[in-house]
Design a protein around this nucleic acid. Structure first.
Lengths: 116, 116
DNA sequence: ACCTCATATGAACATACTATCATATGAAAG
DNA sequence: CTTTCATATGATAGTATGTTCATATGAGGT
């Protein structure tokens, strides 16, 4: 593997499971591995693997709590990043976009692309 | 054509080639398919395939110009998005990169169970 | 020390993705 | 309407990626 590069950050975000995990942590706050797994109906090991990738990119942070390890989202940079993506999605995503980001307006139909 | 889902936007960004294309268009302005291919040392068809995906997510737009098709980046949302990611990268990649790999603890553990 | 719960890790497998090739479509020019 | 240049599209081979299974490691309790 390589050190996280500019591309790496995007690549790490380019996966449903990992995005869902970030969404979950973003919406519901810090969680343990097993409770993430339960919430997403996923295997513990799969969740753990994904979390390692998110850790490498510093999208999340961990802290130990007894036997559990509590993962939390990086508020400083990830939240704004998501806000930016959501902005794009809200503008261009047509229909059937099942997005469960924190805040959201109604999805409007039709492109709002401005012509050059 | 399928409408992009929320995840699609991330997934589309999760590819070096496509990110490079966006960076190119972002830095050097609108370009034709063949000139993108040349700039990135890539095959014409590969570039075209990638452009279709970027189009679907409205990360780029096209306009016909004679025989050529000129692709341009979506300034409104993509540029800010990149700025946001770069901010994160600058904060966590430079120092954090090496660290995230080197920081794996290599503690010797007390007990080792043997394989059954 | 042992046991148990919680998490991490490695390897193997299944799947998804990209790059490539061949070819089709489209646009201008003669 | 044929040719040529530019781009798009479909099929597919090759590769990367995620998922799963088995098991190791860690922490806390008894």
């Amino acid at each position: 593997m390589r050190y996280p590069s500019f591309d790496h950050f995007f690549i790490t975000l380019g996966n449903k499971q990992r995005v869902k995990m970030l969404q979950l942590l973003n919406n519901e706050g810090p969680k343990s591995v097993s409770s993430i797994a339960k919430a997403l109906n996923a295997e513990q090991s799969a969740v753990s693997h994904s979390l390692q990738q998110l850790l490498q990119c510093h999208f999340v942070a961990v802290k130990q709590d007894g036997k559990e390890r509590i993962y939390s989202i990086n508020e400083d940079t990830v939240a704004p990043l998501f806000r930016q993506i959501r902005k794009h999605v809200e503008k261009y995503c047509i229909e059937g976009c099942e997005h469960s980001w924190g805040s959201k307006k109604e999805v409007s139909y039709g492109h709002k692309r401005q012509t050059a």
